[in-house]
Design a protein around this nucleic acid. Sequence first.
DNA 1: TGCCCATGGTAAT
DNA 2: TTACCCTGGGCAG
Length: 323
Amino acid sequence: MPEGHSVHRIARQIERNFEHVPVAVSSPQGRFAAGAAQLDGHEIVQSKAVGKQMFLEFDHGLWLRVHLGIYGSWDFAGDITTGRAATASTTRMGQTNQSGSNAVDAEASQSSIGAPRLTRVRMSEQEQVEPDAEIFPPEPVGAVRVRLLTPTAVADLRGPTACEVLTIEQVDAAIRKLGPDPLVDDLAEGEERFTAVVRKKRTPIALLLMDQSVVSGIGNVYRAELLFRARQDPFTPGKDVSEEVVRGLWRDWVKLLNIGVETGLMLTRDGLTPRDQAKARRSRADRYWVYHRTGEPCRLCGADIQMQELGGRKLYWCPVDQG
DNA sequence: TGCCCATGGTAAT
DNA sequence: TTACCCTGGGCAG
């Protein structure tokens, strides 16, 4: 459910608060007990995101691979730094939060001296920061697959699709299967790889954008929005999409991913007035061009936004602007 | 309050 | 192809 931007934010959060200190690794839920025992007591030396997957390297050469899937999330609590100011609260980075507020904004508003000593951050698609009076460390809530605990910070992982211990060879193999990620790979090389693969395939461009071996990190929201922004018919086979449009899709993904990592939100409409920009941040209904807007009028031409299931996922598009 | 759906991907069948 | 992961928001009642 989190698309690429949130996984990069989570990796950075772990980098800030969990690297280079011994980490107690446990599995309160029990399902990851054996894996946790392999990592327990070691230091995290590297935290890296590639597409929608996160890889944590421990000091004895083993790695933890996590994929959040459709409803996985990380909860952070304790003395959490969210990249702008050091506070102590609970931060949850994970599920949707309708207010549209994000970790950085919330933090900025409460980071004065004397702020509550516990912060809670939930990281998934969007983020929520709240002051929290709980005793540290807080009791695990729900089915916590993995808990990372240092003397001052805790991270709880719930509901992941994938969570496993890997060797470096296995990590390399996993990353080799993934298409280019603008925040990992050289941008020019990434553009060439993406363009070459797309222009060889008969598969509809809408499916290629969701294929993590073609390009990393794009999910259902970004897919629909990127295609609208390019005014591209989603059903056109990759090989029939003009090279200019294919390169444009990559460059637009680079742009949207950077905005997403910066803001914690999937902001896909630019050129808005400051007032409309604020509205788009606040409510999902105003945020997107076509995603989740079946039957509503296109924001440009007024035509009904269409929806069709493709490859098991819902695809949204404007039949006129993308026709 | 209870039901449905969701920003995926894995693994069993 | 289907079940699973088993959460949280939206919405009907």
